[in-house]
């Protein structure tokens, strides 16, 4: 075979190799992506660490409006809870104590109750003497927006308004202190 023929053959071969590699790579990537999606489908992570925390507006027991965006520049310790949830009740006093410490340092605590009656929430707040604002998500819309499944779930929002961390389950006082430290503005 002459030189030209060989060259032609080689370029054809290269083209074929590139073509086959590309097609296989695309198909394998598609399969990989599908598996990844199916594996993560269980915990539909609409919200991820680093995402912008969805804004919301809820009313607290005193009738004051609380918008998440009002707290930009501060860290927001967003705690979703219910009176029937024992771990929620357990961590409340610790949260309250740490709130006393960090509220002067720019950390806001918002306790979001999931659609319970004013009476239940008010008596709970009175019983535990909670000093941070307690808001009630009557239509579960904030719960839906944040895709909250188990209670308690705590979402840490940093001063830039992004999600710093999502904690499901009960926290110790030490945890809470560490988390508040994490979202404290500089």
């Amino acid at each position: 075979m002459d030189e030209k023929g060989k060259q032609k053959k080689n370029s054809k071969k290269r083209k074929r190799a590139v073509m086959r590699t590309t097609i296989l790579a695309i198909l394998i990537a598609a399969i990989g992506y599908t598996i990844y999606n199916s594996a993560t489908a269980e915990d539909v992570t609409v919200l991820k660490v680093g995402d912008k925390a969805p804004n919301f507006a809820l009313v607290d027991l005193e009738g004051n409006d609380h918008k998440l965006s009002d707290y930009e520049g501060q860290g927001v310790f967003l705690n979703f809870w219910g009176t029937w949830c024992k771990p929620c009740a357990k961590e409340m006093p610790a949260m309250d104590r740490q709130y006393e410490v960090f509220s002067n340092e720019g950390v806001q605590v918002l306790a979001v109750n999931i659609a319970q009656s004013d009476f239940e929430v008010q008596s709970f707040a009175d019983q535990y003497g909670l000093s941070f604002p307690v808001v009630i998500d009557k239509t579960k819309s904030v719960m839906t927006a944040y895709n909250i499944r188990p209670l308690p779930t705590t979402v840490l929002v940093n001063p830039e308004g992004n999600i710093q961390r999502i904690i499901t389950g009960e926290m110790t006082e030490q945890d809470i202190e560490g988390f508040m430290e994490e979202i404290k503005p500089d």
């Binding site: 296989l24 394998i28 399969i31 594996a39």
Partner: peptide, 14 residues
């Protein structure tokens, strides 16, 4: 949703 079933279907597509 099992990964090997998805892989098999993917292999069929390939």
């Amino acid at each position: 949703s099992s990964f090997w079933f998805i892989i098999l279907v993917g292999m069929l597509a390939i």
